[in-house]
Design a protein around this nucleic acid. Structure first.
Lengths: 214, 214
DNA sequence: GATTAAAGCGAACACACGCTCTTTATTATT
DNA sequence: AATAATAAAGAGCGTGTGTTCGCTTTAATC
């Protein structure tokens, strides 16, 4: 009868997820939950009843809780999804010296919360577990987690994360007098590794370390 | 004129703090902020305008933020006060080898957030910044932060925090064959320290390490 | 005792917002 | 093509709730 109706019927689950995601983003941005109308506006639903239906679905899925009658009384069941500390968190990407191109796979094992204000920016940082004893004289032990700042250059003497033929490794970068470089393990038992920039690459600089023992 | 009035005039700051604490507790309990009337009921104020006044004061103190017109639109500026991560946080108490009885003063410099689920319990843990190079061979450098689990006994070979005549220090505990103990620095330049239990005490065992460099 | 400012009370207004009911369009089923 | 089920629209009621205003009490100052 009316041609004001002009919507394509969407999949429930997808719309429901969209509602949930909007709530999540809204809480992160504002610190409190959105109203039903705000959610509708945010996900492109014009009727409050439609949104309300989705909310009730989310409740029955146990993803949110609502208190009847109260305004904006939405609580997220899984509050850990709040990015509350989106900064100050860096991803743990795996273990060094495993023969995989780590940064490519972006296989996030976990997010590490760092103490606030330790670093000015943690945006281009990530963490890696270290396997092996090649850096013990630099006080990096087997099993330690190193914090790495992503960058493609480094000074002589800095401990870097280097890529050698698809294999990542932590070593000290030494610039020789003849202009060439080599990688130096901090353990007398290991030999230096020539660093030829063809298949070698600086992935970042080690700027921190975490060690957790029982 | 009326004898219905029956209140004792309280200090503003105290009442203000009470309002803030109530909001904090409410958000922790419910996941969303309380209404003005709920706050009043919670802290014992009968008029919404009184509560509203305190809220405006909290806003001007930059402890909360409010969006005008919206319901329950209170955001806590310092969201870290939410108990959500009350565990997994340990206090940084100071620097070792400063000649003060550290644990007694309980001088908390900062709270360190540890990655979740690293330790079963962080209840009896604290952190200390290490000064000196006496433990470099155990991969503990000057400036590192050690994580210590409070306990009064330790096995031979464990790295402990010991109290020597009002001075705290990090060393390896060695139990000799004759039943006596000594403290051993992990640096050839330092001599062993006899450990006589009269004025020596085990404060805890080192169970982790953080290193942050620029 | 008079004055003044701070803290609180109580009522009232206005509207944001939860929630329901009915209608319409879309998709699937027979 | 007819029927049923689903997703959304749209209007609307009731009320929870922010916000203001004016008045009272308390406590400090003069």
């Amino acid at each position: 009868m009316k041609d004001t109706y002009q919507f394509t019927k969407a999949n429930v689950d997808e719309t429901c997820d969209a509602v949930y995601d909007y709530i999540l983003a809204y809480v992160n941005a504002n610190g409190y939950a959105p109203s039903v109308r705000e959610i509708g506006r945010g996900v492109g639903l014009k009727s409050t009843s439609t949104v309300y239906g989705h909310l009730k679905r989310l409740v029955s899925q146990n993803r949110i809780e609502m208190t009847e009658g109260k305004r904006r009384a939405i609580r997220l069941v899984d509050e850990s999804e709040l990015t509350e500390a989106a900064h100050d968190e860096i991803p743990l990407l795996g273990t060094v010296t495993a023969g995989v191109p780590i940064l490519a796979t972006e296989n996030i094992e976990a997010m590490l919360k760092l103490p606030q204000e330790t670093y000015a920016s943690t945006e281009d940082m990530f963490a890696l577990r270290v396997r092996g004893d090649s850096m013990v004289d630099a006080a990096i032990l087997d099993g330690d987690i190193v914090l790495v700042r992503k960058q493609s250059t480094a000074d002589s003497g800095e401990i870097i994360l280097a890529l050698l033929e698809d294999e990542a490794t932590v070593k000290t970068l030494i610039r020789n007098d003849d202009g060439r470089c080599h990688l130096q393990a901090e353990n007398a038992a290991y030999a230096d590794i020539p660093f030829e920039s063809e298949d070698c690459k600086i992935l970042g600089v080690v700027c921190g370390l975490l060690r957790f023992r029982v």
